[in-house]
Structure formats: structure tokens, C-alpha cells
């Protein structure tokens, strides 16, 4: 494995974070545009982006609300997606900074990207600087692109003619794609999708995706029994 230990933080950010920022800019702009065309108050998308700062969850909340789901369904769905941030919090714990204030502020910058990025770094000062710099880049790009998308979306009158209704599902799939490598995860995801579609006619809007979560048991059950005997260290 290649070691980054001597590479300047700025270089790593340029090489690894900027390309991700480009993708997030597009996702953020789509989020803003879809929010604008969905007719929610103008301040919701930018305020949510600043205070929640979690693209997949914001998209999930938007998707559930657009489908007619209620407040509770949207909150539960989005927070389940953000539950992974809890796992990241454990991994990045030492990279958030020394002072209490720094830790509280940097915790808001926890994302998939900077958590993965610091896995290769072992010096805690470097871990902190890389984590914070990557987080700030993503934070800036995400929020600016949401506003840009919002302004753009305001000028779109016919979303169907532009095919925007196909963009939301495509982005959701693309956001999940990096995690679909393992066959077990694919099996859960496929089962969940079938459960959601099959239950949709019978339950209130927003609830089908929560029913899909039952599919997680496929993974938690067997794999646990599978792993225990072999687990050493």
C-alpha cells in the first residue's frame, strides 16, 4: 500500500478531494434544482445543507417528502442513512482536534470522504489537518452548489421535459454504488428494493423504504454467526 506520510496535505487534498468535490457540486446543484422545482420554501434547501451537511440523507428526505411521505418517515429515513456517520465518528475521533471547541466544530465536517481519507495517515496532527481541510472543501462546495442549483431550478418550468424526474433515482443509485461491491450487500439492497416496491400500494407514502430495512437482517443474522468463530485478535 502506498504511504502518504510525506506528501503535503495540500497535495493530497488536490489529488483526492477536488475530484470528489466536482461530483458533489453536481449532486448539490441537482439537490438545489429539484428542491426549487418541488415548490418548497426557498430557504429549506440551503439551511438544510448548512446544518445537516449530508448529501445522501438530504436527498432521501427530499425523495420521501416528494413521494408524499410525512415528517416522521422523512426523519427516520434520513437519519438511518446518517447512522453511518456515527460509525465514522468513532474512526475519526482522534482527528477532530485537541480543544473541545475544535472537536465540536470539526465533528460537523464528518463525511464519507474525509473519514476514508485519513485511514492512511497515522500521525494525529496530520490526520486532523487533512480531515479538517478536506471537510472544509466539501462543506464549501456542497453549500455553494446547492445555492447555484436553487437559482438554476427557479428558471426551470417544465421538469418532465428535461427528464429531471429520472435524475433523483439515478443519483441515489450512484451514491450507493461504492458500497455495492460485496455480494451480501447487493443481496440486501435487492431484497430491500423488492420489499419497498411490493409494499408501496398498501402502506402510506414514505413507509415502503423503511420496510425495506427488514432486508438488513439478511446480512446481520448469518454473517454474525459466520464471523464469530473465525474472529481472532
Amino acid at each position: 500500500m502506498c504511504s502518504n506520510n510525506n506528501t503535503a496535505i495540500g497535495r493530497i487534498v488536490q489529488r483526492e478531494v477536488w475530484p470528489v468535490c466536482a461530483a458533489y457540486a453536481l449532486v448539490g446543484a441537482s439537490f438545489g434544482a429539484i428542491a426549487a422545482t418541488a415548490g418548497m420554501p426557498w430557504w429549506v434547501a440551503p439551511l438544510m445543507s448548512l446544518t445537516v451537511f449530508a448529501g445522501s440523507a438530504q436527498f432521501a428526505a427530499l425523495g420521501i417528502v416528494l413521494a408524499g411521505g410525512g415528517l416522521v418517515a422523512a426523519l427516520v429515513g434520513a437519519l438511518v442513512i446518517n447512522a453511518r456517520l456515527m460509525a465514522y465518528g468513532f474512526q475519526a475521533r482522534d482527528a477532530l482536534g485537541r480543544s473541545r471547541g475544535a472537536r465540536l466544530a470539526t465533528a460537523h465536517l464528518i463525511t464519507d470522504v474525509n473519514t476514508a481519507l485519513i485511514l492512511r495517515e497515522h500521525d494525529s496532527h496530520r490526520r486532523h489537518r487533512l480531515f479538517r481541510q478536506a471537510g472544509l472543501w466539501i462543506f464549501a462546495v456542497w453549500n455553494l452548489s446547492v445555492v447555484a442549483g436553487l437559482l438554476l431550478g427557479d428558471r426551470i418550468t417544465d421538469t418532465a421535459a428535461l427528464g429531471l424526474d429520472a435524475v433523483l433515482p439515478a443519483i441515489l443509485f450512484a451514491l450507493a454504488r461504492p458500497h455495492l461491491g460485496a455480494p451480501a450487500v447487493r443481496r440486501c439492497a435487492l431484497t430491500g428494493a423488492v420489499l419497498a416496491i411490493a409494499s408501496a400500494p398498501f402502506v402510506p407514502p414514505g413507509v415502503p423504504v423503511l420496510i425495506a430495512l427488514v432486508a438488513c437482517l439478511l446480512e446481520a443474522g448469518p454473517s454474525r454467526r459466520f464471523r464469530r468463530p473465525g474472529a481472532r485478535s
Binding site: G63, F173, A176, V185, C188, A193, V209, L213, C216
Partner: peptide, 15 residues
């Protein structure tokens, strides 16, 4: 790890 992926895919499918 798994729950967010299941939810994203389910939402993509229903949408």
C-alpha cells in the same frame, strides 16, 4: 454500513 445502502436503493427503486 448496510442500512444506508438498503435505504438508498429502496428509495431509488420506489422513485
Amino acid at each position: 454500513e448496510v442500512a444506508p445502502v438498503v435505504l438508498l436503493i429502496a428509495l431509488a427503486a420506489t422513485a
